[in-house]
Design a protein around this nucleic acid. Sequence first.
RNA 1: GGGCUCAUAGUCCAGAUCGGUUAUGACGUCGCCCUUACACGGCGAAGAUCCGGGGUUCAAAUCCCCGUGGGCCCACCA
Length: 771
Amino acid sequence: MEPKIKEKAWNPELEKKILKDWDEEKIYEFTPTENNFTIDTPPPYPSGRPWHIGAAAHYSQIDMIARTARMSGENVYFPIGIDRNGLPVELYTEKKHNIRMRETERGEFLNLCRVALDDLEAEMLLIMKNLGISGEFANYYRTDSEEYRSLTQSTFIDLWKKGQIYLANRPNNYDWVSGTTIADAEIIYQDLPTKLVYMKFKIKDTEKEIIIASTRPELLCACKTIIVNPDDQRYAPFIGKKIIVPITNAEVELRTHHSAQQEFGSGAVMVCSYGDQNDVALFRELELEEVVAIGLDGKMTEAAGEYAGLKPKQARTKIIEDLETNGFVEKIEDIVHRTPVSERSKIPIEIIPMEEYYLKQKDSVEKIKKLGQEITFYPSMHKQILMNWLESINIDWPISRRRYYGTEIPIWYCKSCSEPNIPEPGKYYKPWSDKCPISNCTKCGATEFVGEERTFDTWMDSSVSPLFVSKFNKDSEFFKKVYPTTIRPQAKDIVRTWLYYTLLRCDQLTGNKPWSQAWIMGYGLDEKGLKMSKSKGNAIDPLPVIEKLGADTFRFWSASEINHGYDFRCNEQKIESTKKFLSKLWNVSRFLSSFPVINSGKPNPTDKWILSELNNLVKECKKGYDEYNFFVPAIAVREFTWNVFAAHYIEMVKARAYGIGFSDDERDAAIFTLHKTLSTILKLLAPITPFITDHLWKTLYSQSSIHIEQQVEPEDEQSENKLTEEISEFNSKVWNEKKTKGLSLKDSFSYPVPKSLEPFKKDLESMHNLI
RNA sequence: GGGCUCAUAGUCCAGAUCGGUUAUGACGUCGCCCUUACACGGCGAAGAUCCGGGGUUCAAAUCCCCGUGGGCCCACCA
């Protein structure tokens, strides 16, 4: 009989047609019912070409989650979104047009960002679609849409009213030349020459002195404590004593702290607001009261007494003179100091307290820990990342940013009394350009306002994604059915941010956790195991790879190469060689397509053996699918299909399937078993390689898609692993013998079948033409 | 510096919770072979001091301790 399948290999071009069929059949459409499986899909950020190949693998696997759930009978809601807020697009736009954000008119700058995002987004959506992702592309969302931003603003207004938000001073990196705060990422370190001054501090009520070395003596006025290492015996007798600060004569306490190193300087450190990041940490940890010694103009403040108005460098020179005059200096060393400088202006940054909005989180830590415990993590080890993070939280969350491309903080300040006025929730507000929607100040009744210029930290937006997709505050019917959602799939590096902030915000707003499961994936590294980056030139562009090899090849590579939760290496050649397996699957199917489908039969021992192995395979795959670990089924199915089913079973029953030398019943049993096995393999692979399996399924078994089928359930029966090994060994022996004797494989040959393989004698004899 | 994690052939990976005969499979390499599904194939071969050191044990890739090296996250030196 002519095979139904003519082509000799799987052609990835077919994927385009299959995508169209899926669209027309609408098999992935979602209508909410009482029980839904909702995926809180991570909205990817279009930060520039090329899209990270690891991300493409990540989204392929998220799609496998959706398909796995569908095949186990779930009603799957798989939203698609694009994250568009934040710094990366600002930097991208500045570079692309060679402009500076702050020197460009705000509306114009935002437009340029928007256009850049649109281009990058289009390519990203194309890749996602071509990967076969079965999400809701028709109404994908953007985090910078009016609808999304108004949700972010509404949640802010809600929390503001609940008293969860406050304004506070916080030390910031400040570049006083550019007049702006800068992000940690914009700081570079330079080795600059400076003076290390060893100063004498008196210990109160004693004749003793303690020597303290510092590069920032001008900050003496902001010194609030002295620390030494707890193991440092030299200072042990004086712990808790008061120390008199030179020049200011202030009294501060001597205490121990592990961050002081015995070997550096004298081993004693003065802690000032703020000489460096360690000072910031210590002020916070020890709850010291800060002194603002340097102002926004980059000059010493009134707190510096007679040094007020001087720049830090001038003040330093002068205070060193004064210290020397008064005998407070032991010695001065010229050293080279690793100094944090602004990447832009190249001047040393100052750490200056500035007013920012904070969202309370410290009070929620215990509650979030509890919620974290209730959530199932896949793999479980990554729950630890969240728990460690929760342990280390010691300040509230600063949510305001002095940036442009973000959701605006919806506040107008009264011009006469400065009272912050908050608008009603439900609309999208742009205080930097919009007229204040409130007519009279709630405090003094005045009518003139100034709009807030700052935006939110982008995690304020992303952290409400489960609320957005479940139509929180918008469609209560829908929300009731969909929230809490089912699963949050995401990468490992943003557990401390996205996962944590989502838990915090959703709990604050709904009193309920956002999902019951979290699925955490590792990073995609290059073939040497290094992080991919555009600057290193080791980034692989996924688009040409997918176009050339097809989505299924890429997806099968992703499943068979990535052990869930661990980092993985990307190698183009490896992806390419994965195609061979699809080719094998194709040709097995091509062979079977020359036989009619038979739905029942009386399996002989050979058939029973392969069906039993097939059942073992189903069991193994189920284990993997139950934990959304696609590595397990991918490896298991490949191994079975290639090395057991094709290599041994098909060869053993070929003659029988053709009916040469066997009865009709025996023939039909073989054909039945062949189809039963292949159709099971196709189903087991359907979530991983949706294109080829659907194509083969429709060609061989059904009018309708494999993606509306239920997954195969294992039967509870004993395995017969031992036989597989014996069969494979026997076949090897015969092949080798024939080879040594210079015989062709079809030549007849005299060789005994061992007793243990007696039940398979007839099939083995026909396979090897044994006499 | 703190945390998490990994370490098995040229490359990737199994062997994890339950120590036990010649350490799994794939890719790559080499040799032979057109065998009525497949040369994008078949058969076969070579290739591993299981990171190092110590310990527990009759027995360790597997369990324990100490190192070394990679990756990532966080913090960065008065």
